[in-house]
Design a binder for these strands. Structure first.
Lengths: 214, 214
DNA sequence: ACCTGAACACCGTTCAAGT
DNA sequence: ACCTGAACACCGTTCAAGT
């Protein structure tokens, strides 16, 4: 359920869901409405600022009503995480495999940077919901399609995930922490992420060349 | 303060600090004692299971006494994080720069895997305490010593940090989550981490060769 | 089936009060 | 200077009770 494809239609910032606190007819409120509200709150306050009570207030329902539509908070966070992953667009499929990977991870980073705390949650919990599986298949199609074996496919995906979620989590934190003296910065965040991405891809390219030659 | 060097003397699992709940004479309890107890609790329950009240109970002091030695919980977590970083040993300095980096990050991973939640905290907060600075200098010495410019030094350190903290955070999570059906695993964690580390180092080596030739 | 409020067991933190 | 308990404003979650 809640399979969100990447056309951006369900962006909680657009007006379609009516912003905050509309009223619901008896039995009308669905799990998707709850997740949409959670997504809206995450966009505003970050995942750490999300509570079941605030969510209920945002929806204009009684405090504990959300529990009727979502098992518990962990399940809610998983749904939010997966919804955010659903906003990562598919890459143009007429490009080379490495350019496609760059496209997926650069736009993935951009999406995750909009939702504070979501990258961190995805690092800690991989729920196996629809959009995570979609992304996993998308990447496998690119890598297996390029001729990589399943082992390399799996390893590369996990390394790239560590880099993406790790980078975004760290960037969000240092962006907020203007309070303390930040450590010296010789390169900005976009550049560092791109540098890491290129290192991984360069390694994969070398492996690719070796396989075609050998 | 609390500069912990890497000889392991302050490992909270050894008997030196007397385990739990000794009694303290008036004015005897120091910040280090508080951090040691927090480190012990983190080892047992993970950083997420640490609370100011549990910490006080562990120390056998009144609930709010910990606040006298530590400004707040965030400061406590920072101190724990830095103490854990202090357990990462310095690499043998008679080896090549890339082998030294492997040594630091492999042992760094091993240390972080013992303290659930600490890698995640370090991803979110970089406090600039003594041991973090020590590690930063250690890596700079290796990379600058090998002839890399400051920009590459900075970028490489950050990419390697994303990889390390991201990998450990993700590994800890999937290790605990035996409940749900885990996604297929073609490679185990050590192998994947080593694979990512090698990709980054291979890229750095290529850059190193190019600089020496050009 | 859907929704509600009270209640429980936790949190971090503040603060007046004690020695 | 060092330590304490009560109190406040939050949490997630359960559950008996309402429609």
């Amino acid at each position: 359920m809640t399979v969100t494809d990447s056309d951006g239609d369900d962006d909680p910032t657009d007006g379609t869901s009516g912003g905050r606190s509309r009223t619901w007819r008896y039995g009308e409120l669905t799990q998707d409405d709850v997740v949409d509200a959670a997504l809206r709150l995450t966009l505003r306050d970050g995942l750490a600022g999300l509570s079941m009570r605030k969510l209920a207030t945002e929806l204009g329902i009684s405090s504990m009503n959300a529990y009727y539509h979502v098992r518990n908070k962990r399940a809610l966070l998983d749904l939010v995480g997966d919804a955010v992953l659903g906003q990562v667009p598919a890459p143009p499929d007429d490009e080379a495999w490495d350019d496609q990977l760059v496209a997926v991870f650069e736009s993935g980073r951009r999406v995750l940077l909009r939702y504070p705390g979501v990258a961190e949650h995805l690092l800690v919990r991989s729920e196996g919901h629809a959009n995570e599986a979609r992304l996993y298949r998308m990447l496998s199609r690119i890598l297996i399609g390029a001729g990589f074996d399943r082992g390399t496919n799996d390893r590369a995906q996990r390394v790239l995930a560590y880099l993406l979620f790790g980078a975004v989590t760290s960037e969000m934190a240092t962006a907020t922490a203007g309070e303390d003296a930040a450590p010296m910065r010789f390169a900005d965040d976009d550049e560092v992420f791109r540098y890491g991405l290129d290192l991984v891809l360069e390694g994969l390219r070398a492996q690719h060349r070796a396989a075609r030659t050998g």
